[in-house]
């Protein structure tokens, strides 16, 4: 069992992009599971890389970039699900 749920990751993500959502005129309610953070223009690729760094630090996990599908990675639902499925760093 993990110590956090996909919902917690989602909450953290929304918090991270809150300001950008406002700039783009998008409400948090519109960010459903199919919402794509990159394609929607909410964040650019550099900010996305930064967000993954922050996610890793916050949830103490390591994303495996060799196994991730880049098409899925920036979609909110699959990203949250993926991060919550990872094991805590240091645990076998």
């Amino acid at each position: 069992m993990n110590h956090f749920s996909a919902g917690m990751v989602r909450e953290f993500l929304l918090d991270f992009v809150e300001e950008r959502l406002m700039v783009c005129g998008i409400s948090a309610a519109e960010v459903n599971d199919d919402f794509d953070l990159l394609v929607s223009g909410v964040i650019d690729s550099l900010a996305f890389l930064e967000m993954t760094v922050v996610l890793q630090e916050q949830f103490e996990v390591e994303l495996d970039f060799d196994e991730i599908d880049p098409v899925q990675l920036s979609i909110v639902g699959s990203l949250c699900h993926y991060v919550s499925s990872l094991k805590l760093k240091g645990l076998a």
Partner: peptide
């Protein structure tokens, strides 16, 4: 030229 999706995985 990478797409936005490619640019988030620079190593790939």
């Amino acid at each position: 030229c990478p797409s936005k999706k490619q640019a988030i995985m620079p190593q790939k």
